[in-house]
Simulated assay, not measured.
Amino acid sequence: MHLNEFCKGIQLGEEASRIIFDFRLEEEEYAKLKQHFQTDRHSFFRYVTGAAGYRQMLLYLFARFAVDAYEEYRIRGIEDQIYFDTFKDIRIWSEVCYRDYGEYGIEEYNWLQEHVRLQLFRLGRLQFQPVAFDGENLKAGEYSVEKHQLVLNIHIPEGEPLTPQEVSHSFLLARKFFRGIPAVYICRSWLLYPGLNKVLKAESNILRFQQLFRIYEVDEESREAEQRIFNRLETSPDKYGEETSLRRAAKALLSNSGTLGSGCGVHIPCLTTTGDWPDAATI
């Protein structure tokens, strides 16, 4: 796998690709930085972000790390489609960096470390990450999710519509990919905030996705929904734009002392989402 093939595979734009191709770093220095990343990631990020132009440097380094990870994908027999789909997050976050800072690079470096460590994979529309369940035990009849049990954490990347068909396809791919891990899915996201029914239509793909989960925890203080809907956080709702129907509805709700938080839910395909799990207040 070469850098140019990688950039083409993740559909990275010409300007962002040029940053990678033109970046000058001696191989010896690259090897030291990679070793630093592998042995102490927190120290590595402190070191890199202390340098001028660190966003461009991180774009280059994550592209190199991803190229290096290709061999491990091959050893594990993981197909190229999954490889490129997973690392398209580099393109997504480089574009977010341009939107927020006016330059192509990487600011979400803590997030992207999971990809290059092969701790997270994109399968269709959704991303999946094996993790130890950190909540309290959830029980429903013969089914239970115990603390520290291995589950699949779900993340929803920006991009295509979150249609029921695409979501179902992702769950099917995950069942095949993560053989040996129980089909228990955990998701913590603003998409699972129950109050979204005040700003979205009933047929919304987001609400349909939300209905797959039994929500067992709600964070009313989270501002993730505001960040995702408006692409920034403001001190007053009056400062938010009204370019879309969702933004208009969300701004109106916030302006009238409403809240948009986040939720955490569990989805087990063999259970329905109504009646099988206790209410959040009783867990």
Rank of each mutant, 00 (worst) to 15 (best):
T259L: 15
G241L: 06
N4R: 10
F133S: 00
E166A: 09
I156V: 14
G50F: 03
S189Q: 06
A250D: 12
Q56K: 13
Y83R: 03
F121E: 10
R125I: 10
G77K: 11
R41D: 09
D80K: 13
R247C: 13
D68C: 04
N256G: 08
C7I: 05
A52C: 06
E226P: 06
T49F: 00
S17H: 09
N4V: 11
K34T: 06
A281C: 09
V167F: 04
A16T: 11
G9L: 02
V167Q: 09
I156W: 02
N110F: 01
Y70V: 05
F213V: 04
E243R: 14
L150Y: 00
W111M: 07
A66G: 05
R46E: 12
Y109R: 07
N153F: 02
K198A: 14
V96Q: 12
L138A: 02
V167Y: 04
A52K: 10
L254W: 07
I154Y: 00
Y73N: 03
R18D: 13
N153E: 10
D238W: 03
C187A: 14
K176L: 14
H2T: 14
I156E: 01
E166H: 03
R223M: 13
T86I: 14
H169Y: 12
F177W: 00
D40C: 08
I78G: 04
E234A: 11
I229N: 10
P164Y: 01
R125G: 01
L112E: 05
W190A: 01
W277R: 11
L25N: 08
F6R: 11
L212E: 03
E136M: 07
L172Q: 14
S204H: 08
E221M: 07
W190C: 00
Y193N: 07
R208E: 08
D85S: 14
G265A: 08
E226M: 12
F121M: 08
Q113V: 04
R208D: 05
T163I: 07
E224H: 04
A249W: 02
I283K: 01
C7R: 02
W111C: 09
D276C: 11
T39M: 03
K139G: 01
I215G: 03
E226S: 05
